[in-house]
Write a protein that binds this DNA or RNA. Sequence first.
DNA 1: AAACTGCCAACTGTCGACAGTTGACAACGT
DNA 2: ACGTTGTCAACTGTCGACAGTTGGCAGTTT
Lengths: 217, 217
Amino acid sequence: MTPPTPLHLSLAGQAVDVLREQVLTGEIPPGSRVNEVEVAQKLGISRGPLREAIRHLASEGLLTLVPHRGAFVPAADSDEVKALFELRAALECAAAELAASRRTDVDLVRLHEVCAESRRNYKAGQPFPYRLDLAFHQTLIDAARSPHIAGQVKLVQQRVVLLRSALEDDPPHQHASMDDHDELVKAVEDGDAARASTVMRRHLSRVCAQMLTSLNR
Amino acid sequence: MTPPTPLHLSLAGQAVDVLREQVLTGEIPPGSRVNEVEVAQKLGISRGPLREAIRHLASEGLLTLVPHRGAFVPAADSDEVKALFELRAALECAAAELAASRRTDVDLVRLHEVCAESRRNYKAGQPFPYRLDLAFHQTLIDAARSPHIAGQVKLVQQRVVLLRSALEDDPPHQHASMDDHDELVKAVEDGDAARASTVMRRHLSRVCAQMLTSLNR
DNA sequence: AAACTGCCAACTGTCGACAGTTGACAACGT
DNA sequence: ACGTTGTCAACTGTCGACAGTTGGCAGTTT
């Protein structure tokens, strides 16, 4: 009962999902190499579809290709983090502006809900899960209703997750982030595009700084 | 004298260059389909490398993949243009801001040179070649010294070129564009990030509007 | 002992062939 | 005449095998 199974998703597509997961969770650690024959056997597919999956992930920035040498998981680097956050700021500030002028009531409900859940979680003594941070930004970006910007932001956030994979969080930073989120929602609710952009920029530069200090240790 | 030639660029890499050129110049017209066996034979390579090239161009947005149906050159669409320019504005406004604070004297010389060449060309009765417009934006982006933003901008501009491929230019719009460019250079020269961003936004919304009117005809 | 040279295994790049799916055309039934 | 169903060619998805390149290791030389 294992037909070539192109029934709903190609083997290459499945391989992309599995590999992405393994790279983002650190199961394949940064700096390590991806052996085509080895991984292909482990996934039970041939090298063709796997190569396509590898190239696809490389185009997303989750793998780095070296001719005749293979694919590597890019390692965290200080300059890389800065450059990445410049791109992220450009995209998310624009998204925040658009969200402020296009958000619907449903968007606001969703944003408030995510913030509320974060607070509940925090007061319960739990650490602020990165999952909720991601959910907040995703919700905000969807409220901007700009498919191309949304797509790019998701790719960048993925790369941030990759760099984050071996980083710990400290509570004060988490608290500051939640405050930023609340302030962002307020600006979006008021339709204040300029303020939304400003707050987002401050928020991201704070997060970036935290990642940098957490990296040099 | 035709070894597999991985000497300097893989077959897939060469195929990417050739295909990109053919798509951007309209040699492969929008809406048309890319037949793998046909193109592979025409390029004298097998389907493997060609598939990689196709997937790569698809990741750049120059081709659209449909499962079990093949790759298509995306056709120009009004909503697509708007969404694309929202992304472009987000990126290039940020780049303009960064350029205003990071530009070197060499950057300024280059920018002035491109503007001057545009003026000369225009006064000589020649139409404002899109080549010079692209050169200006590229120069400005390089002055921002943000590799990730630069990379994304180049991809977006490529897609704009694709949509532009079947569009004509009108002189008044060309004149306005050159004025915008001059104003941008001035703002960057003064290190006025806010103004650079504002001018860029106005410039891009003008170009976008021109493309939209030129499209509905 | 250190450096250089030649060989070798491992892996990527490429190819040709097979299997499965899709859209279209033709034949059939209503 | 129109809609339905069965068949078929064309094309994509996938596989296994071969060729070329790379980095490392052993052997040799100074």
